[in-house]
Design a protein around this nucleic acid. Sequence first.
DNA 1: CGGCTGTCAAGAGCAGTGCTCTCGTCTGGT
DNA 2: ACCAGACGAGAGCACTGCTCTTGACAGCCG
Lengths: 234, 234
Amino acid sequence: MTQTSAPRTARARARDELTREIKDVARRQLAEQGSAALSLRAVARELGMVSSAVYRYFPSRDELLTALIVDAYQAIADAAEGAESRVRRGDLVGRWLAIVRAMRGWAMEHPHEYALIFGTPVPGYAAPADTVSPAARIPLLLLRLCIDAAEAGRVPTTNHRPMPRPVRADLKALREALAPTVSEHQLAVVLMGWAQLVGSISFELFGHLHNTVHDYESYFDYQMRGVAKQLGLG
Amino acid sequence: MTQTSAPRTARARARDELTREIKDVARRQLAEQGSAALSLRAVARELGMVSSAVYRYFPSRDELLTALIVDAYQAIADAAEGAESRVRRGDLVGRWLAIVRAMRGWAMEHPHEYALIFGTPVPGYAAPADTVSPAARIPLLLLRLCIDAAEAGRVPTTNHRPMPRPVRADLKALREALAPTVSEHQLAVVLMGWAQLVGSISFELFGHLHNTVHDYESYFDYQMRGVAKQLGLG
DNA sequence: CGGCTGTCAAGAGCAGTGCTCTCGTCTGGT
DNA sequence: ACCAGACGAGAGCACTGCTCTTGACAGCCG
């Protein structure tokens, strides 16, 4: 019953290792040609095994894809958290910029994996429960940032527009579940900031700014500084 | 050499009709199961022909998909333009809301077609030139709206942040090519508004607001009114 | 230590895909 | 009336995800 990192039996060790190898090869193929081109048979071929053997480790192609999705969520969240942690906690704008730049950087380095988690959901595929907690890491990171901002006395600059009742109700429930100390307005602003962040990266990555903007990085920075201002970070 | 709407020969007429039928069936299959499930063979089967015959009309599956993409761009632009045209031209916020609501409505009715044009680009697929002009229709519509706003003396509410030199250069080139009368700042704001609009619809459609927001329509309206304010529409 | 049980890789096979090539047929313009 | 070109049908190739069966091996219990 020892849950140590070293698996008990040689069989179990081999199984873990092979599972990891399959994921690694799959991730490489995914990175090179995109999710649609990810083929279980091709993975098996590259590993020198037969396709049916892979099914001992992943019951279906979708299952393998889900494992990669979870990994991708973790990887981009690691990048964001890592970058943010290296900034002085009092520097709110710096923390925000660290997060968004890390996300954009990761997305540029792993476009297909980014597309896997923030692009069109794969057809007829419903995200399993395993994905929701990794997916929430960055939003929660942003929320903590805004809580710190609130504690420092900073509030969103957007003039307080009247909020429709159903929106207020949704945000109230969310607030009570996640962060009782922030206001509905702050939550609304952070949610919009999150959408704007992901939308911005996707826009660039999916080519919607082609022939429109050329210095993407400057434009992204400019845009994200604007969002930081909206968030009331500085 | 008569370029009339009625095709010359019976053969040409049959060809046009069949081309249209193929697109219709393909669009239906696309709407039902998404782009990945679009199969030339299935389309052929439904039309009572053999798969190779379809290749007389579309040289490849990608070519058929491109035709559907162009149609989708035109359809959503038609919806947006139609809705906007029914609003009094002096009502700037009304025109903006008409456009964004029409876009969202069309997206909800045709999620897979929306995903085709605003989601992850299909793997290894470079948008052909035929798509760029239909794709630009809505951005240009928004630009005209902002020009009207400028003529009415309305300017973006965002306090004029310093704009990095490369961003200003990009926007200057864009401005001179499209709308010499607007300022770089207005252009920047309309570009961000466009990104926020598409990002917002995609976020909802791709399920990123699951368990977060429940009354999507109210939230969307609330958010888009905020963007209207940023755009300086009212 | 021996046998039983469950895991494993391998192979064959099914149904489906995009796409190509060939082969008759029929049509439209000369 | 003829003939090039368009057309539909069919066979076939290489590929996919996935299932089932078969035989070999490892790990556990008596």
